[in-house]
Amino acid sequence: MGEAKFTVDLNADIGEGFGIWRIGDDEAMIGMITSANLACGFHAGDPAGLLEVCRMAAEAGAHIGAQVSYRDLHGFGRRFIDVTFEDLFADVIYQIGALQAVAEVAGTRVSYVKPHGALYNSVATHPVQARAVTAAVHAVNPELPLLGQPGSELFRQASMVGLRTVAEVFADRAYHPDGTLVSRREAGAVLHDPAAIAERAVRMVKDGVVAAVDGSVVPVHVQSICVHGDSPGAPHIAAAVWEQLRQHDIDLQPFT
């Protein structure tokens, strides 16, 4: 196998259990990703569980990101909340700070920030909430990158305050022709075939495109690929993506 011509980050949402409830197989996932998006207690994640996952990430060499969200444990952070700028600004600061303390005890650190669920979708178009998230990240540490959707309001606001942005694509989510994600409320929004997902990931990196639900080809800018840790069979999906990327001379490295 020749020298890798492409380099990409592979991220997944983990640490999303709460108490006795566990979502996904964090231990299986952590060895197959380069960046771990950790819940911060607002949509999922309890302190003891997050400390355990941070220790696993530190041992595996995966970089840790704060996956900030609305305060919505009941809805897993997937419901829009019309929160004020001041409240969201403080909530994001609080979540990053909490995870940072846990990460430091585990021998690692928070390397980036990624919004979760409904907040991720909201900050793509909502100027006030996007500004609250970017202002909070900048206030905590202006060197922290933001992982998210290219062309979003979040990225526009980030550029205004000088935050680095990292473009993300989703190997296991369906896309509309305009490059937006198909809502989870619609059939076929989440893909489950490991081989097909892995093939999409390779095409995204090498060709810079993804097939939309109508069959059209959508251009994508890829710095990091997300596979969802809470999907059924997530470890098998992550393993298939990892293997296919490596087989196509695509090097996997954290973006931070």
Rank of each mutant, 00 (worst) to 15 (best):
Q129W: 01
Y112Q: 08
G77W: 13
V83W: 13
H138S: 15
E104Q: 15
A103K: 04
L88R: 00
H116A: 01
N121A: 06
E104V: 02
Q129F: 00
Q100F: 05
A139T: 13
N141F: 07
R131Y: 00
G148H: 08
E86Y: 12
P127S: 08
I96S: 06
F85W: 10
E143Q: 14
G77S: 12
Y112T: 02
P145V: 01
I96Q: 03
L154E: 03
D87C: 02
V110I: 08
N121E: 15
Q129E: 08
A103I: 03
V105D: 07
G107R: 05
G117K: 00
V128L: 01
A124C: 15
L88E: 04
A139C: 08
T125M: 13
H116F: 03
R78S: 10
F155N: 12
A101S: 13
G148N: 03
A106P: 06
D91G: 06
H126C: 04
F155L: 09
V137A: 14
Y94W: 10
Q149P: 07
E86S: 13
I96C: 02
V110Y: 03
A130P: 07
L99A: 04
P145L: 09
D82S: 07
G151V: 10
E143H: 15
Q100A: 12
P145G: 03
T84L: 09
P115E: 02
I96A: 04
E104N: 09
F80D: 15
G117N: 08
A135T: 15
T134Y: 06
T125H: 15
Q100H: 10
K114D: 10
L119F: 05
K114L: 05
V113G: 11
V140Q: 07
P115R: 11
V83P: 05
E104P: 13
A136K: 04
T125F: 12
V105E: 14
A118Q: 10
S122V: 07
F80G: 08
H116P: 08
E153H: 05
A90Y: 13
P127I: 13
D91E: 13
V105N: 08
P142E: 09
V110L: 09
S122R: 11
D82K: 02
D91V: 11
K114T: 06
T108F: 02
F155K: 12
V110H: 03
T134N: 14
L119K: 02
V105T: 15
V128M: 00
N141Q: 10
P127N: 11
E143W: 11
V102A: 05
A106N: 05
E143A: 15
P145I: 02
L99R: 00
K114F: 07
L144N: 04
E153S: 07
T108A: 03
P115N: 06
G77Y: 09
P127A: 12
V83F: 13
R131H: 09
A136P: 02
I93D: 11
D87F: 06
G117D: 05
V123M: 07
G107L: 05
F85S: 05
A139E: 14
A103S: 09
E143D: 10
G107V: 03
R78T: 11
V113E: 11
H138N: 15
Q100G: 12
H126K: 00
R78I: 14
R109P: 09
Q100W: 06
A136G: 04
K114Q: 08
A135E: 15
V113T: 10
K114I: 09
H126G: 01
A132Q: 06
